[in-house]
């Protein structure tokens, strides 16, 4: 390896450039990172306050079997957390992940700091890898923050109760927590598609908004197409098709078939997008 470092400045090691900690701080210094994470704390609080105003109105959102998640939201901390995840999984978390993964490279390009990082030189593959790891780290942190806050305030307010749903028998609090962790894990995997797409766009464009918006837009488009049953088999190929399969973890025994397919779909998409991102970024002329 020493010859690989040939000619480098004293103390320069390619593998030590852009340490994860440095990149983590670089992102933490940004207001939008802290705002996004703050929102993850704020949302459960807002929901909790909103529930305090509940006037026992018959507010059936028409969600069929799962609409009752809303009715059950106040039955315990676990159910409250589940509800918070349920309402944020389709959009808020998508935006947050798209923000962390779509903004990371594109904003450096926009500021012009990207070329200085490359001139350090931070090897391109390392730059992409570190940026990706940190963006995924923040995405995971956002998910955990949301769930953690919801669980904490939900338990404080509604107690440590079994996990209830109308699709299956109630699940004791202990196993219920495990199910919840499973749901978080699955959500994290599904969101890898957003992370992958946003990151690909991030290394492709100099406009952070374009990368974030593009990923969210594709996600929404896919959700809409998924509603069109006439598309038949094609729907199974949509990245959002299995995005609600985590509901299967609420039944007893757990239904993992759709979850497995969802994981396959997400992993394939994410791998594809990230491979493209690496391939593209390690070859492109940085012009910004």
């Amino acid at each position: 390896m020493t010859d690989v470092q040939a000619g480098a400045a004293v103390n320069y090691r390619a593998a030590r450039t852009l340490p994860i900690r440095a990149e983590w701080r670089r992102q933490w210094s940004r207001a939008r990172t802290r705002w996004a994470l703050g929102l993850m704390v704020l949302l459960p609080v807002i929901i909790l306050i909103a529930f305090q105003f509940d006037s026992t109105g018959d507010d059936d959102n028409g969600g069929g079997e799962f609409g009752s998640l809303i009715d059950l939201a106040t039955s315990g901390g676990l159910n409250f957390t589940l509800f918070c995840l349920y309402v944020s999984a389709t959009f808020l978390l998508v935006v947050a992940v798209a923000l962390f993964c779509g903004d990371t490279v594109a904003s450096e390009a926009q500021w012009g700091s990207l070329r200085y990082l490359l001139a350090v030189p931070v090897p391109r593959a390392r730059l992409v890898a570190v940026k990706l790891v940190v963006a995924l780290g923040y995405s995971g942190l956002a998910l955990l923050t949301l769930a953690g806050t919801a669980l904490a305030i939900g338990t404080a307010r509604y107690g440590w109760e079994p996990l209830r749903s109308t699709v299956a028998n109630e699940i004791a609090a202990g196993p219920g927590l495990l199910r919840l962790l499973g749901i978080l894990g699955y959500l994290a995997v599904v969101l890898l598609v957003v992370a992958g797409l946003a990151f690909l766009l991030s290394v492709t464009t100099d406009a952070p908004l374009g990368a974030v918006g593009g990923a969210v837009l594709v996600w929404i488009l896919s959700s809409i197409l998924d509603q069109i049953t006439a598309l038949g088999f094609v729907r199974n190929l949509l990245p959002t098709h299995y995005s609600t399969a985590w509901l299967g973890l609420l039944s007893t025994p757990v239904q993992v078939d759709d979850i497995v397919k969802g994981v396959i779909s997400a992993v394939v998409y994410a791998t594809l997008f990230w491979s493209l991102a690496f391939w593209r970024f390690t070859r492109k002329d940085v012009t910004s």
Binding site: V4, G7, A8, Y12, R115, L118, A119, V120, P121, P123
Partner: peptide, 13 residues
């Protein structure tokens, strides 16, 4: 691109 020897160059581009 990415040659370690770049670390001996300071740049404003």
């Amino acid at each position: 691109p990415g040659s370690p020897v770049l670390s001996r160059i300071g740049a404003l581009v």
